[in-house]
Design a protein around this nucleic acid. Structure first.
Lengths: 242, 242
DNA sequence: CCCAGATGTAACAAAATGTAAAAAAGACTT
DNA sequence: AAGTCTTTTTTACATTTTGTTACATCTGGG
């Protein structure tokens, strides 16, 4: 399974040079492997040959219609497709989704938003892949008798008590559990929870950690599940899969 | 297989000259081969002779009733049929689909919408040859024992109780169910419900979500079907196809 | 042991969401 | 055209979730 951005290949199809460069550098900065194209010719072959995982497709390409391209791609491939549409193309966007695109953003878009959508989509794609093999999350995460259902965002205690986690706490816990034994910096955690950078005086991660610890019954002065790495961040120390 | 617009022949049957001209020029601009008629006489012969692929049929023609025409056409031909109905003709619309029309638009319609629906239909027609199934939804959507009939916009509970959903609620639910596990922003949902943008103080999506939740018996403080992604949007969490 | 900086957390502040009810907008009927 | 019914949108306020602040506590290095 592809776990790091560097394993993931993103193809940006956009005719306008400025927009394209912006996207390319943005995704490169995020660590992805990025290719570009200014038209949709031979897109299918290219995707297959270069094993592209995700296509960002400008819907208003000169020549070929973006919707047509979408359906052609989807007919032969399960590559991720995110459409980039203009403000007035509401109907194209909706039909685009019906034709098999996975998501869309509207121009002018916030690159950050696009990055988040891309991440979400990649996560959905790869977690769906591995859903059956036991290596990943057949029906969620489990650790030390606890269970976390990512579908319904619910936490079940060893005693069977269920609780719905707020969005932020859920994502934080999910991120931690996904990287057991690894110290995650506040910056990394912030990135996973929201789409925001961490600034030196931001204590919101700490507060969320505290709330999670309480819900997990984890005594902060002797935590068993979420350990503090002083000066570095936090680390999940539970045994996953139990 | 016909892949370019120029290969495709569209016949527009509409008695009002202004509407007809509008449609003709719109589809010609999109690159299709277009013919026109102001009545439904000899429609079947004409379709066969000129190898028409798609008919846009105004349902309220003088003389022959559009529904009758639909039935006659469908009896002898697999030509694509898109009905153009007036606002109030809900019954006609439903009956039309049951008689074999492939899709409909409601007057006054956005020409762009009609074009997109036409593209969509043509794609379904030509890919049905090869693929066999398409991703069309023969008998609607189903999830967790609920059923949603897109033609009648009817929601059937696991217990068998039926209810007709208003347009907005229906589209919202349909969109959610079509993207299970994916967080959809208010902006996206707004797109799907109307062709409108979402503005920061617009709460109409939230209100619709609330109504749907009530109809689905989904407790908002512990929802199982429509989950809130705080700061992001909503997500459908039911199991589809059950 | 003392100190500076880092962390834990309660309490408060701000923002987002849930929802009833009123208002507005359509659609249909007479 | 006026009135009625349905649906949608807005408004207002309760509630929930998130973010900030302040201060207590802890950590690790002199």
């Amino acid at each position: 399974m592809k776990t790091t951005p560097a394993d993931i290949h993103i193809l940006i199809v956009e005719d306008d040079l400025a927009s394209r460069s912006l996207l390319v550098s943005y995704f490169e900065n995020a660590g992805y492997r990025v290719s570009e194209a200014d038209n949709a010719d031979h897109l299918g072959e290219r995707i297959e040959r270069d094993s592209v995982d995700l296509v960002l497709l400008d819907i208003s390409l000169p020549g070929k219609d973006g919707l047509t391209v979408t359906r052609e791609l989807r007919a032969n491939s399960s590559v991720g497709i995110i459409l980039v549409t203009s403000k007035g193309d509401e109907i194209d966007r909706i039909v685009g989704l019906e034709l098999g695109a996975d998501d869309y953003v509207t121009k002018p878009f916030n690159p950050r938003e696009l990055l988040v959508r891309a991440k979400n989509l990649l996560w959905r794609m790869f977690s769906a892949d591995t859903a059956g093999n036991g290596n990943s999350n057949p029906s969620g995460y489990s650790f030390e008798g606890w269970q976390l259902d990512p579908h319904k965002r619910q936490l079940t205690s060893p005693g069977g008590q269920q609780e719905r986690l707020p969005e932020g706490e859920f994502k934080l816990l999910q991120t931690l559990v996904n990287h057991p034994g690894q110290v995650l910096s506040r910056d990394q955690l912030m990135d996973a929870i929201h789409d925001r950078e961490w600034t030196p005086n931001d204590r919101s991660v700490d507060v969320l950690i505290g709330r999670l610890r309480r819900k997990l019954g984890d005594n902060p002065s002797n935590p068993q599940l979420i350990l503090t790495a002083h000066g570095a961040g936090y680390m999940f120390a539970g045994n996953t899969g139990t």
